[in-house]
């Protein structure tokens, strides 16, 4: 089936969706608003190129996604992402052969499959912890974990090497997991 575009309904149908998509990935309300605006405008200007293979929503999202990647790229040009192999000391006892420190070694905790109210509370904690990551780690992890983006694409967007990419993913996951555990203990 061939899909068609209905620009008159774009704002009603997709503005909130695209805004949510953008704000979750760039953590900046104003920039997210601007990106949504740019997305609609450039979509409208290039509506002739729409092939109808993807549905309207997917098509608009892909335009927004490219704009988000452009924004990451611009930012990485002005402030280089610095990654050091050090600072693992909080998690691993570097002198003792890089095994877990007693205090930060993972403990058993529920993460999924909880009763709905509890899961909701836990997901709030997970979300808070995600936002506590340094912003580049946060964006890099979201691109991989949520959007299943190719490693190569992410490396280009942030101007990092694959080995830096995996250091970020590793560090982000360690920190995220630890944050969730500590916050759920208090809750």
């Amino acid at each position: 089936m061939q899909n068609t575009l209905s620009p008159d309904k774009w704002i009603t149908n997709y503005a909130d969706y695209l805004f949510s998509y953008a704000i979750y990935r760039i953590n900046d309300r104003e920039q997210a608003e601007d990106l949504v605006q740019e997305t609609f405008l450039s979509a409208y200007k290039s509506r002739e190129q729409y092939q109808g293979n993807a549905n309207e929503k997917t098509w608009l999202t892909s335009i927004l996604k490219n704009k988000i990647i452009d924004l990451y790229r611009k930012k990485s040009r002005t402030s280089k992402v610095v990654i050091t192999e050090s600072d693992y000391g909080y998690f691993f006892n570097e002198e003792g052969g890089s095994h877990w420190n007693n205090l930060t070694a993972p403990k058993a905790m529920p993460i999924s499959g909880l009763e709905s109210l509890q899961q909701k509370e836990l997901n709030q904690i997970i979300d808070q912890c995600m936002e506590l990551l340094p912003s580049t780690w946060n964006q890099v992890s979201k691109m991989k974990l949520i959007d299943d983006e190719k490693t190569e694409t992410i490396c280009k967007a942030f101007d990092i090497t694959p080995s830096n990419f995996w250091v970020i993913m590793h560090r982000a996951k360690l920190q995220l997991r630890d944050c969730i555990e500590k916050k759920s203990e208090i809750a």
């Binding site: 909130d16 949510s20 979750y24 997901n123 995600m130």
Partner: peptide
């Protein structure tokens, strides 16, 4: 769980 959280998170323009 992260994927589910993202899907459920909505903002209004």
């Amino acid at each position: 769980e992260l994927k589910k959280i993202e899907e459920e998170k909505t903002f209004v323009l």
